[in-house]
């Protein structure tokens, strides 16, 4: 699949934004770690909203006819893309009311404020899930058509959100042992999910034989029928060689998982300063970006079978 930068930026940035909001709401409501300061609350809250909004705006750059983008919420009952749009919009009032409640009442949590925070966090989680399901629901792309896809989207969103939250709190000078430990756990779980995914996509299940119906003989392409690139080639024909996949997976393991885990663990054990937390956040953000690029680049659409690929 063609890795479109607008979609990669969207899923990575808004995923981390939703993760950050979820962590903020949970840490605030359940009192995880040291009590929040006002500055931390606004930094985390506003940053999450900015990231979510920037991501959503970027996703519209992927549309060839954005003037009809408002119609995307019309098929909630069948389309995961529509569901994502609806939940992304539904998130905003709760997030804004939560922040407004904070502005009015300060750090004192009233019942409405708790409700807004928890409902907002739940919708944020559902939105990331629906983003994953847009890809997970496509049977035509065997590498995506697995429950690991939405699971990875959620786990990476939470992991990067937790790392961002740790960085914000550390930079504000708070004691972040508990939150950093939580972030280590979330990044580790996300790493396990991604490793399982990389093993899972190793097998190819659909062949040129069932695609053409000639199941008792070897089928080879003689002629694609076109002399230059077509929409189908450009959109689905993207290929990547094994060495590059190996290298980039290494980058993902390093930047998205290993480095953040080490840095966050150092912070959790009081061995590092706030600079390390910022480095961890930058590292996981870049690592997730590479991970998302690979997610597209490694996906093999079954239409490639008609263009001569033996299996997908």
């Amino acid at each position: 699949m063609h890795p479109a930068l607008s979609v990669i930026f969207f899923t990575v940035t808004s995923g981390a934004g939703y993760g950050l909001f979820i962590l903020l709401a949970l840490a605030h409501v359940f009192g995880i770690g040291d009590p929040l300061t006002v500055g931390e609350f606004y930094t985390a809250g506003i940053l999450s909203l900015v990231m979510i909004t920037a991501g959503l705006l970027s996703s519209t750059f992927h549309l060839a006819n954005p003037k009809n983008a408002w119609r995307a919420v019309m098929r909630f009952r069948t389309s995961w893309l529509s569901r994502e749009g609806v939940f992304a919009i539904a998130f905003y009032p709760f997030a804004v009311l939560y922040m407004l409640g904070f502005y009015i009442n300060g750090l004192e949590l009233g019942v409405p404020c708790i409700l807004f925070a928890l409902i907002g966090a739940l919708i944020a989680l559902i939105t990331v899930f629906t983003t994953g399901m847009i890809y997970g629901s496509l049977k035509t792309i065997p590498q995506w058509s697995t429950s690991l896809t939405p699971a990875n989207y959620i786990l990476l969103g939470l992991a990067s959100g937790a790392t961002f939250f740790t960085a914000i709190r550390a930079l504000a000078g708070s004691e972040v042992g508990t939150i950093a430990a939580l972030a280590v756990a979330l990044v580790a779980i996300a790493a396990i999910g991604k490793v399982i995914y990389y093993f899972w996509i190793g097998r190819e299940s659909i062949t040129i034989n069932t695609a053409t119906g000639f199941t008792r003989a070897v089928v080879r392409l003689l002629d694609t029928g076109h002399t230059c690139d077509t929409f189908l080639n450009r959109e689905f024909g993207h290929t990547i060689d094994c060495a590059k996949v190996g290298l980039l997976r290494g980058v993902v393991y390093l930047l998205a998982f290993a480095l953040p885990i080490i840095l966050l663990a150092m912070i959790a054990t009081q061995n590092g300063g706030s600079g390390l937390a910022l480095l961890a956040a930058i590292s996981i953000y870049l690592g997730t970006g590479v991970e998302r690029w690979l997610f597209f680049a490694e996906a093999k659409h079954v239409v490639n079978l008609y263009h001569g690929r033996q299996s997908c």
Partner: peptide, 20 residues
Amino acid sequence: DKCMGCNLCSWACPYGAREL
């Protein structure tokens, strides 16, 4: 008049029947 050109239908089609 309604299509927004998101490409998702072309992704969902196994036969390459849709082109933007």
